[in-house]
Every structure is written in structure tokens, then in C-alpha cells.
Design a protein around this nucleic acid. Sequence first.
DNA 1: GATGAATGAGGGTTCATTCAT
DNA 2: CATGAATGAACCCTCATTCAT
Lengths: 188, 188, 188, 188
Amino acid sequence: MPANPKTNRGPSAGPANRRALIAAARAVFAEDGFSAPLSAVARRAGVGQGSLYRHFPDRIALAVAVFDDNITDLEALGARPDARIADLFDQVSEQAIGSTALIDMITSERHDPRAEHLGERIAAVADRMLARDQAHGRIAAHVVTDDVMLSVAMLAFALSQTDPAERPAVAERARRIFRDAFAPRARE
Amino acid sequence: MPANPKTNRGPSAGPANRRALIAAARAVFAEDGFSAPLSAVARRAGVGQGSLYRHFPDRIALAVAVFDDNITDLEALGARPDARIADLFDQVSEQAIGSTALIDMITSERHDPRAEHLGERIAAVADRMLARDQAHGRIAAHVVTDDVMLSVAMLAFALSQTDPAERPAVAERARRIFRDAFAPRARE
Amino acid sequence: MPANPKTNRGPSAGPANRRALIAAARAVFAEDGFSAPLSAVARRAGVGQGSLYRHFPDRIALAVAVFDDNITDLEALGARPDARIADLFDQVSEQAIGSTALIDMITSERHDPRAEHLGERIAAVADRMLARDQAHGRIAAHVVTDDVMLSVAMLAFALSQTDPAERPAVAERARRIFRDAFAPRARE
Amino acid sequence: MPANPKTNRGPSAGPANRRALIAAARAVFAEDGFSAPLSAVARRAGVGQGSLYRHFPDRIALAVAVFDDNITDLEALGARPDARIADLFDQVSEQAIGSTALIDMITSERHDPRAEHLGERIAAVADRMLARDQAHGRIAAHVVTDDVMLSVAMLAFALSQTDPAERPAVAERARRIFRDAFAPRARE
DNA sequence: GATGAATGAGGGTTCATTCAT
DNA sequence: CATGAATGAACCCTCATTCAT
């Protein structure tokens, strides 16, 4: 028999709790990865387990809420007429950890339609940037969106496995590799 | 109440148990990843949990024993005069899952000296191959061992995150990316 | 922060909510049994949890409201001059699942006066039918109301434990058993 | 990181714990029904949750262990040359509560082969008794094993829903009903 | 030394019940 | 009066790790 509430701040706390949960999840996912315990999220948000499940029935729902902002940022980037694939890599590098959990989610839950959808939104951005880059001759013609997506995933992974202090160097190295890989060849 | 030892083969089983544990761990890590339950390893080896902990005080000790063979194979490969970086990528791709656990271990336990040491041995192989490839002009001069190591890790990661059916395609894609990235430039 | 009531239809919705709750509870109890979560009832009724508790302070109060209709139907049946015990069994069999929850409630909450009262109403119906049947020599003289009530409860139980596909067969079997048990004996 | 053992009585406690678990389960199932929390069983046995799961990977495995004795008793009864169906009902009545949980398990888990097997063992006993009774003209020829099994299940249910004080009366009533239902008719 | 059992914390999830608005 | 969110206890199950024999 449950029911021994200490502080019921009432429904007005709803939206605030939701925001707190998203913020907590963002932090927890960043620190401990996408598979961090959800109880840690609730605890950090200062919210009961039940409330977490009310707002987000499962891990993916929570992740979608967390990452939606990231993707929206990315889409905004893609909408800028001067955006390049290089900017995509920049963005991923900058968001380093957040992106890592995002990518982890997209790949580990790849059979969930919601995760799939996020992946598609990223792919759409990449696609657009890629077309523009190729139109300007900045990227080799044979490169396809899947190449870019795979590279982004690998970049995110590499950063996730790197100590924060070394991340800039690793990001730089990886981005150079991909830049070289995608650069138009002299003979092309 | 008298003791009732059923199948205690006694101390003589020591080395045999050790081998059985390593073989079991290899299989378990391959099937369920580096963080598979150790109890599964003991069960599969037909050995008590206690014996597992006696032989291998922690997960890393066990992993080191498992992966030592893999690395030895790799070193053998590196010792062959005709070995190329491309072979390294081939080997990683072929071992797909096994290497995945290896890479997972090396990166997730990167602060453990034992894991570090395994990484260094791989790096030594890569270093040797790279030097040879560069001497033959098969790899651009600016490429360094860290580039190769990062690429190998990323390749292994990509494969680990891919459904088995799609692995060949992803391996092909990733290797092409790295091949292009490391290819000597016309202007070089 | 101003209040932001979205769809609070206000006090006027009182009776409508009550009816919605009863209908929802009937459906939920039928689908998931008497111990289905009350939250499911509120959700299905499109009503807040709080309102549910206001109208029905506990599970039994809700169940009583739900089953009152069933019993009323039964009483109507009992009032018909041609009604027989066999019809009672028919009715129970037909309501299969619904009755199952009813019986479940009456027996599991047998110490609650409200549940008791429902039981008594059913017993009154059975009593009346039995008297008529015995007057016509259709039921053995030694049979008493408690025999009928026990049989009804056992019938409902049997149906509740049976896969839907097999219910007709089980109902048939059980009713035959009770018919034989209650039939007047040659020697009587 | 678990591991803060207070008292490790060692492997020798294994069989004792197993027995304690079975005894505890028997008591808990008897008091709170087949769906009582397993944690209560572990607690009552004075054993960690983990040990419970080690001995009995799931609720059914535990129940099988608990009820095996009951069924063995029943089979012993069936093997006696003078055993009758009436004795089966007696036995069920006497074991009242234990039988209740048994029947509950067999019906609620009817798709699990282990539960099915227990059911079949009971049916075999019933079958044998029934044949004998019919050979002696003590039971009507048209009665089949399924009739008996259904009756036993209904009897067990009725007892489970009855307060201990009233059980003898209810048992008597139910047994009389079934006796009448199965009695050979004068016209047969 | 090997064995295999024990332990208990931890994470996921569900739900009855309360309460500010 | 209605709303709908909050709470937290309880259950299930899994594992890392220890220890008597």
C-alpha cells in the first residue's frame, strides 16, 4: 500500500518537472551514456520514479525529448545556405558527448521507429549539405549520404570513448580523415 | 552431515580450467559483448564461479587473457614482410565481433594499464605496417599511427553497431572511406 | 504563473463523469478482471483520477455501481413467472466474463457489507427460482439456495479460468453436472 | 556494486535453503495464493532473493517443487486398490488451501508444460479412480475424466474463496453436489 | 585449489492514493 | 467539483563478489 507523500506540489509542477527530467536526462546521458539508469535521471531531477514514467513511458521517449533540441539545432544549421558537411562534423564535435548518446541511441535502438525517425532527420540534413558541397565541387561526386552518416556515427563514437581533455585532438584527427576521404580527387 | 563432493576434480584441473575459462570467455564476449555476465563465462566453461575469480580476479584480467591470442595473431600478421595496413583492416573486419569486444575493452577500460598495453601492441603492429606502406608509396606520407589506430577503432565500432546481415556492406563502406583518406594524393 | 485549465468542464460534468466511469469500469473489469488498475478505468472514462476517487472512494464502491445493473437484470429475470434455475445458469454463462468479475468481487471481498449485499440479492433471485422449480418438480426437494449459489460461483469460476475458445464446452459440461446434481431422483 | 555479505553459511546451506524455500513457498502460497510475491517467499525462508532464483528460476519451478509432494500423495492414493473418486474429493478438501494454489497454478499457467504435466498427473489419478468406480457401478457410466477434473477444480476454487471456519461446510456441500451429479441413475 | 551456493544491492516498472490548482 | 500530476513503496529479476567446505 503506497501513499505516504511528503510534498505534493500539485499539477502545476508538471511542466516544470518535465523540463527538469529532460535536463537531468541530458546530463545523465552525457555523463554515463545512453544506457545510464533511469532512476538516476529521476533522482537528479528531484522527481519520483513514477513521474518519470508518466512523462516518458520508456527510455526512448525520454531520449527523443532530450535529443529533439539537438536535432532541431542541426536542422537549423542545414537550412543555412552556406552550410557544409564540414559544419555537420563541427556540430557533432562541439556537442561531443550529447551527440554520442544520441548516436548510441539511434544505433542501439535502430529498430524503434522513433529512433529511426531521428536518424532520418539527421540524414536529411546531411543529404542537403552533401548535395550543396558536391554542387560546389567541395566533396567528391562518389560520396553518398550513407558515407556521411557512417562517418558521423564513427566520429561520435570516437569522441565518446575519449577523455574530455583529449577530445579536441581526436576530433581534429577524425575530421581530417573524413575530409581527406571525401575530398575530390585530382583525377576526378 | 558428511561432505558430499560431487565433481570436484581437485587441484589437478587448474590449467585445464584456465583454458576452458578463456575459451568460454572468448565465445561469450563474442556473442554478448564485453560486458556479458561473468557468470555466463563460468557456466559455459563448466567451472565454478570461485575458480573464475581465482584465475582472473577481474573482468579485465580475463579479457586480457582472451585477447592476447588475438593480438598475437595480429603480430604474426604484422611480421609478414608483405603485410599492409589494408590487411589490418581486413583482419579487424573479419574478426568483426571478436574485435569489437576487444576494442570495447580497450576503450572503455582505457585507464587500466593492462588494457593500455594491449592497445600499444596493436599500435606497434600498425606502426610497422604503416611504415612499410608509406615506404612503398601506398599510403600518404602525412598519415601517422594514431590515424590508423583511430580508424581501426572506428571501424570496429561501426561493425559492432550493425546488424550481422549488413556488416559486410558497412565494412566495405568504412574501409573505402579509410582507404581514400589515406591514399597518396596526386599532388603529393 | 497563471492557471492554465485545458479541459476542465467544471462541476456540471459530475453525473456524466459518473456514468462514464461506470461504463469504463464495466469494460475494464470485463477485459482485465476485477483487479485491473483503477487508473485504466479513469483513463478509459476520459476522467481524472481524482474524480474517480471522488465518485467512488474505493474499488468496491465502483464495482458495486458496475454490478448493480447486472443484478438488476438478474432480478428482472427472476421476476418472470417462467424463470428457472437453468436460466440463471444460462445468464451466468452468457455473461461469462462480466459475471466472472462479479463473482470474483463477491468472493474476494466477501467481508465487505456492500459485496455481501450484492450476494444476497443474487441469492434472493436464486431462492425464488428454486422454489418455483421445486414446486414444479423440476429440481430435487433437498436442494437449497446455498447449493445453487455455490454452483453459480463455481460455474463462474470455471469459465473465468478457461480460454475463451473453450468456454462454451466448459459451460456445457458444468451445467450438465449441476443439472444432474439437482435433478429429482427416481426414488424421490 | 553488490557484495556486502553478512553471513555466508557456505554451500552446505544449499539443500537446507532449498527445503526452506519450498516450505516457505508452501506456506505463502497457502496464505496468499499462487500469485503471492516471491519476495515474500524469500523473506520467509530467510534467504536472499538471489538464492530463490538460483534454486527456482521462476514461479512455476517453485510451484512444481511445492506441489510435487501433494501430487505424489495423490498418486499414492490412486494406487490403492480401494481408492474411489470420493477419496479424491476428500483429499482435495483436506488439503484445501494447498490444493487451491495448485489448481490455481494449473489453470492460470495452463500453457506452461510443467503445469500441464502436473495437471496430467492428477488426471491420470482421476482416470484410474473413475474407471474403478464405474466398474463397480458407483459412478454413472456417462461420466468422463474431464467431468471429474472440472469438479475438482471447482471444489478447490470454492474452498479457496471460503473462510477457514466455513470450509468444512462448503466442502461437504460441494462434495454432495458432485456425488449426486455422478451417481448412477435408477434408469441406467 | 575447486566448487557452487549465498548474498543483497540496483535497475525497471506498476499502481494506489493524495493534493495543489 | 474536476483535473491531472506527484509520490513512493513494492515486485521482479540480474549480477558481481565472497566464502564455507
